[in-house]
Amino acid sequence: MRLSSPAVRWTARGVLLAALIIYPFVVPQPGFWVVNIGIKSLWLGVMALSLIFLYKFTGLLSLGQLAFWGAAGYTIGYLVQLQGWSFAPAIALGIVFGILLGALVGSFAIRASGVYFLMLTLAVAQLMYFAALQASQFTRGHQGITGIRPPTFLGLDLVSARTQYLVALTIAVLLYVLCRYIEGTPFGLALRGLRDSPERMRALGYNVYAYKVVAFSFAAFIASIGGVLAIFYNRQIVPDGVGLIRTIDVLIAAVVGGVISLPGAFIGAFALTMVQNFSQFFTSRYLTLTGVVFVVVVLFFPQGIAGLWRQFTGYYLWAHDRWRPATRDAVEGKGVGAGAAQLSERSTD
């Protein structure tokens, strides 16, 4: 029953990590299982992580993360393929460009909230799409920048599927650990604080606006790294890569995985990749199928796959409590609801 004890958790993490490392060496058809499923899930997971980080810590739901993915991807494609740069400086510049674009977009988008923020960031993603189509001297228009050959870094040949998978896995794990670390720092606490009560944060002396811009830029940094991984995977960057459907893919991966759960990013990306790859065996309408999965998750499993355990233990406790009304009353009496009711009775002015 002590499923939550640290020893059990660390063992589970170790086993999972070992399984993910062994994975490319044991699966059949590496071209499919390692590349189409494995690497695709990892970079899509990084994109979902960027969205979930922002949502979990600041309460802002962004549809614009693919714009930073595209900014990094196009920068690398342009510098390497059209200007003949080597990869290392192109990747560094691509990530820097992604972060700067994030800071710029963040500096105005975070003034909005809720659905307005959602629409603003969607507009940014669409701007990136049309810029990719029209700025053809940088992007080669609708044909895109193609034929990009993944480089060899420090003896790691990224053309090899296994190597590329392991590099993507390492980067994904590092980003995940970084997000988890930030959760326990004053910066992470402040972000969670301003999500719960921006007014209180101001009353304590925090600059809420600056914190949000930094958080948004950090999410753009994660998305830019997703863009780097994706360009090795796709070996090209085309406008459709930053189009509306891909934008929605990131949202679906995050929601299916569990939009307030950091591991949910990768679970959701894996689930979506599986659905998209296997749906072709029984239907050509994979977008419809994806949409149906999305609707079902939103309606019945609002905490996503990562929240299933909690959701079902919640049902169990609820059913259990129905037979013991006395305990339930005791719990409710101590809850926030009771406090709020008391407060509104007493409230003055």
Binding site: R192, G193, S197, E199, R200, M201, A203, L204, V336, S347
Partner: peptide
Amino acid sequence: FQTSKLFLDLTVADNLYLS
């Protein structure tokens, strides 16, 4: 605040730490 404005998802210690 007259109506409590706390960081409801954070622990008491983390609320105090932020202050």
